[in-house]
Structure formats: C-alpha cells, structure tokens
Design a protein around this nucleic acid. Structure first.
Lengths: 104, 104
DNA sequence: TTGACATATCGGAAAATCTCGATATATAAT
DNA sequence: ATTATATATCGAGATTTTCCGATATGTCAA
C-alpha cells in the first residue's frame, strides 16, 4: 500500500462520493447491469458511463478518477465487451482503516 | 470532521512522518521537554523547533504543516511561554479509522 | 468493413499545493 | 526598554492537481 497515493485519491469530493455510491450500487445506480451477461455477473460492479452520469463530470475525468482509485487500491475493475465495470475493493478499505490505527 | 481536509493533511510524506513520530515522542524527540515546567507537563507534546529539526523543512513550512494538521483535527496544541507544543489527537484518529469503515 | 458506442489517453489552461525566505508577533531575559 | 528566542504569518515562484475537449483504441452490430 502506498498511503500517500491512497490519501490523495480520497482528497476529492467526487472521488469520495464514487466510493460511497459503490457501497450500495443497486441503490445509487438502479438501472445498472443492463449489459452484464448473467453468466459473468460481476457483483456490485458499475460501468463507467453510469458513474459519469451520476458524478456529473466529463467522461475523461471520471475515467482518470477511476483509474487513479484503482491504482491506489480502492477499486477493482473488469471489462466485459465494451464496458468496464468498477467496484469497491472492500478488503483494501478494511486494511486501510487498520493501517490508520497501527501505522499512522 | 471534514474528511477532505483530513485526507489532504495525510497526503504528504513529511506530515505523515510527523504524525508517526508523535506516536512515540520520547523515542523520536529524546531531548524534548527541556522547557516544559513540571507543573504543566503536557503528556507527549513536542515543540515546533524540535519537530522542524527532525523534519528537515523550513521553520515556516513546519509551522504551517502543524497548523494544517491541527485544523484538520489530527493534532492538538498548547502554548507555554514562547513554545508551542503539539501532540497527536489520538481520539480523532480512532474516529477517523471508524469513519473510514462506516462512511466511506 | 463500416459505423456506432464505451472507455482510455493525450495535451493543456486554470487552480491548488508546496515550500521557501522575509517579516511580524509573542514571550522571556537582561 | 532592549534584545534574544520561538513561533506565526505573508508573499511568491515552482510544482502538482484538476478537469476539460479532442482524439485514439477497443468492441459490437449491421
């Protein structure tokens, strides 16, 4: 874990909101998953376009935000066809809270 | 708590180190406390000058870093005479870890 | 294979942050 | 009062971050 990169990724309201939204994807992205084939169902993953619409920033901005959060460890992604689905890395976030308590 | 301000304060190696050093002040600031009168002994507080020497940044930089971390909630300070002593706000850091688990 | 759509990457202008030296303020000692 | 010391504040140049539009890449459908 690179704590500086993680804290930088968390230092932005939009990115923080994305993390929060992805905690309850069904609630915040009701129409998501339309394109996701059942057999590869990606639990809780939301595609970039849906996140962009909700976040109200440009397509390039949301793409780089998501990439940044993934590199930091906060998110995971899979691609299915032309869609990329992002979801939280809950284990990592747990570890981050633990890291705060012990290493900071 | 303003999470953005807290994460910004944590997004810098020197500031992160200051927090870590203040976890074991006796260890990292062996000669600290020289000016602190016994009757107002400030458990674990370290003066700005000692922190600056260890952090190897300018006096103004360390002063604004400490101020920023205090505003964010990570540190507390008391002034005794011409010295300002800073120490960790451990309760706040605990709450931050909790906040991460529940709100992020 | 062409066209349409989703996402990623690039290049850059504006804003924010970093970090310093200079200076101001507060307190203590003479 | 004056001087010395500790810390805070100010102003600014360098660097980084923000966020966009334009463009490239990848994938699917016709």
């Amino acid at each position: 874990m690179e704590p500086i990169d993680v804290f930088k990724a968390l230092s932005n309201e939009t990115r923080l909101n994305i993390l929060r939204w992805l905690k309850e994807p069904e609630k915040h992205f009701p129409k998501q998953g339309a394109h996701l084939p059942k057999e590869v169902s990606y639990k809780g993953g939301v595609c970039v376009g849906d996140i962009q619409e909700k976040a109200k920033v440009s397509q390039s901005t949301v793409s780089s935000y998501l990439n940044m959060m993934q590199k930091a460890g906060l998110l995971e992604s899979v691609r299915h066809g032309q869609w990329t689905y992002y979801r939280r890395n809950d284990l990592f976030i747990e570890q981050l809270a633990e890291y705060l308590k012990t290493d900071i």
